[in-house]
Design a protein around this nucleic acid. Structure first.
Length: 415
DNA sequence: TCTGGGGTCCTAGGACCC
DNA sequence: TCTGGGGTCCTAGGACCC
């Protein structure tokens, strides 16, 4: 039996944990630049505010309904996620952390899975303040579907005990509700007369493979109760890493702020490399104009490195070179990003013959020292001038809650 | 005025090899 | 007139996920 445990309205629930006045009130969390809606409490969903809606389109409605609106506070959400996952790991020896708010658990030979799930849900909520819903079934895809339905049930738990339960669930769900069937595939499947998840489960897997590819064929088998997707208890090594941001406004191709932003991104990316014990074999930068103006464009430049690197300064320099070759002076860019590719384990990679081992060691020591200082003094305390003078960070982010669990100065007070 | 960020997998087609 | 067979690697694009 595979179980999916999923936090309800995760980001919104995190905000509620430290502010009891928010309970029962509609709560909404926004993306970077306060651009889009990325999390909604049940009450906000009931107001008909869509996931991903641009905030400016729904702001008036939110105001009228007294919605509590927050800027994304990822320091808080990341730490709350870690707490939830700790409890899930205690509950089962095999756990796959699938996303910041979801995990699959393998429950073999459990006498009463339903009681187990109810107990788990209650324990996590009591110990972290985060409400869970739980679905269980013979495959990951069925567990996902069961969980989705469980969110609407009073206890928040749905276990597919037998074929009758599976059939009843599948007959009540649309194609798009199925994990792996998105907005492109669903209409093509409907054109074949497949309307419900049950119809998809009844399709011939081989025929589906030929017409739609392997993932859809697997999806069909999983819906039938045949487990095709393994639990990945050890996260597979990352292949690429991306840091990108939209600008609050737009920047011209030669604007120094554009280069500063991009260097900032590459520094963050290099820091992530070192945290993960990785080096990058190649780097790509990209610039995008607004997709909402006529003919949005995406420009990219790529370079393979002579040898894998996690060196902030070396990567920044390449990044600057690439940018000068790429940016169009007159273009108005809305977004910039850095992608590091061909990632390898920093501990098992062979240096070039004849390269200067001493210099490399000194540079590595320097990076470690920088990381350590930034950890102690706060992110970006020490960084190259090329990344620009530090802007007043989070300026105007009046909607940002405190870092209740990760910063001494933000600890909650009790009286 | 204002529209997020970060990933993976699969497939088809081209280049190239013997 | 007529032009093989079998393989790998790489890339771009499309689809999906949270």
């Amino acid at each position: 039996m595979i179980v999916l445990a999923d936090c309800n309205s995760f980001y919104a629930s995190c905000e509620r944990v430290f502010d009891p006045l928010l309970r029962g009130r509609p709560v909404l969390v926004l993306s970077n630049n306060d651009g889009c809606v990325i999390a909604r409490s049940k009450e906000v969903k009931e107001l008909g505010i869509a996931m991903g809606a641009p905030y400016f389109q729904v702001a008036a409605r939110c105001e009228a309904a007294g919605v509590a609106v927050f800027s994304a506070n990822f320091a808080l959400y990341g730490d709350m996620s870690r707490r939830v996952m700790t409890h899930l790991r205690e509950a089962s020896p095999s756990v796959e952390i699938y996303s910041i708010d979801e995990a699959f658990l393998d429950l073999q030979g459990l006498a009463d899975p339903e009681a187990f799930c109810r107990d788990l849900s209650a324990r996590v909520e009591r110990n972290t303040g985060i409400p869970l819903s739980i679905g269980a079934g013979p495959s990951k895809t069925l567990a996902k579907l069961a969980d989705d339905a469980a969110k609407k049930l009073p206890g928040g738990v749905l276990v597919l005990h037998d074929d009758a339960a599976r059939r009843a669930l599948l007959q009540s769900r649309d194609l798009e509700d199925v994990w792996g069937i998105g907005s492109r595939l669903a209409p093509r499947l409907r054109a074949l007369g497949l309307i419900s998840a049950w119809d998809l489960a009844g399709a011939d897997p081989e025929m589906m493979r030929q017409r739609f590819g392997l993932p859809v064929a697997r999806c069909v088998r999983e819906l039938r109760g045949e487990s095709c997707l393994e639990l990945e208890e050890v996260a597979p090594a990352k292949q690429s890493l991306c840091v990108s941001r939209s600008f609050p406004g737009e920047l011209r191709g030669r604007d120094p702020q554009l280069e500063a932003a991009l260097i900032g991104h590459v520094l963050r990316a290099a820091e992530k490399l070192r945290q993960g014990g990785l080096k990058a074999g190649a780097i790509q930068i990209f610039l995008e104009t607004s997709a909402f103006r006529c003919a949005g464009r995406h420009d990219a430049a790529f370079r393979r490195l002579a040898e894998p690197s996690d060196d902030s300064l070396a990567l920044s320099r390449i990044c600057g070179d690439l940018l000068r070759g790429l940016s169009q002076p007159l273009c108005l860019y809305k977004k910039a990003g850095v992608i590091l590719l061909d990632l390898v384990d920093a501990s098992c990679w062979q240096p070039l013959l004849g390269s200067d081992e001493g210099a490399r060691q000194r540079r590595s020591d320097l990076m470690n020292a920088v990381d350590k200082l930034n950890q102690q003094l706060g992110r970006d305390s020490l960084r190259p001038l090329a990344a620009g003078l530090l802007q007043a960070r989070d300026k105007g982010k009046v909607r940002l809650s405190r870092r209740w669990t990760t910063s001494w100065s933000d600890l909650p007070e009790t009286h």
